[in-house]
Write a protein that binds this DNA or RNA. Structure first.
Lengths: 153, 153
DNA sequence: TTGACGCCCATATAATCCCATGGCATACCA
DNA sequence: TGGTATGCCATGGGATTATATGGGCGTCAA
């Protein structure tokens, strides 16, 4: 199973088009997919994407109750209602809908960030800020772990 | 299971290419891999590498929730965002991306350092400095251990 | 009619492949 | 044992291909 790896910055043209990085396209082509499925990320100001197969797998995991509970309904709504299937054009580009551009603060450039099973599309400068924060937090986490280990000795 | 052992210094050409040492390639070929996966090391000014299988194994350990927590999201980000899959060319070389060259201070030469399950790529002179420091610290550690043992007698 | 959208082609640049070379170590032969 | 042949490996450069990106044209719907 190939995964989405690496960060690639591409341009967004006047039509809202952006090239999906070739390595990411290769991951999808391995599943015979000719497009990506995108939805607003719940964890940050960016767009998340994956293959349609993953979305369909999500459907399977949801309980198929005739009368869904409030929780399931909310989850289904968040993911499925706002998800869009974006097909590649001849050059491997997708068109980002206006609401996605707005949600992620995208203007002239988009950064594709690999996340393993999924990827995200960020405004490059927002990405830099967010990454710095994540790094800080990870380092702090690491420090406290080392301290705990030392005390345990 | 073969592991990455030894140190090899190879040239970096104008295109950013560097030959992966044949013994290292053999380790990867044993796993039917035709490339290496590299990422900036957290512990020092160098690039770390391993087989793609090792990264994919990490994907498996991550929880596969439709809605990831912020924590899991950050972990996936730190692992995958800065990693790159670098395939071998016909001569067993890889091309090092510009940001890797910068991170590790690489210019005309790179030192491949075996670390068992992984390996690292260093600027040769930076490696020498770092190794001297590591040696100093190891010796100091040894001294204090010996002293502690003597007091215990 | 005016956008929005899908589809096509054009192009510069960057990445990838391919082959040639020289050095080193090993294997082979006289 | 000395000398030579062979093969692998690291490296250089050129040719070919892929990629990212810009723009044009027809179709459909508001």
């Amino acid at each position: 199973m190939k995964s989405f790896i690496g960060t690639f910055i591409n341009k967004i043209d006047a039509k809202g088009r952006i090239s999906v990085p070739a390595p990411f396209r290769a991951v999808l082509q391995a599943k015979s997919l000719s497009g990506v499925t995108c939805y607003p990320a719940l964890t940050g100001p960016c767009i998340e994407g994956c293959g349609l197969d993953r979305i369909e797998a999500m459907v399977e995991t949801l309980p198929d109750e005739p009368i869904p509970g409030v929780e399931e309904d909310a989850i289904a709504h968040l993911i499925f209602a706002s998800a869009r299937d974006l097909p590649f054009d001849g050059g491997g580009r997708i068109v980002l809908p206006a609401d996605f551009l707005k949600k992620a603060g995208l203007t002239d450039q988009g950064a594709f960030v690999g996340k393993g099973r999924t990827f995200q599309i960020w405004n490059p400068s927002a990405l830099e800020t967010a990454q710095a924060e994540m790094f800080e937090r990870a380092m702090a986490e690491r420090e406290s772990l080392l301290r705990a280990r030392k005390e345990a000795d």
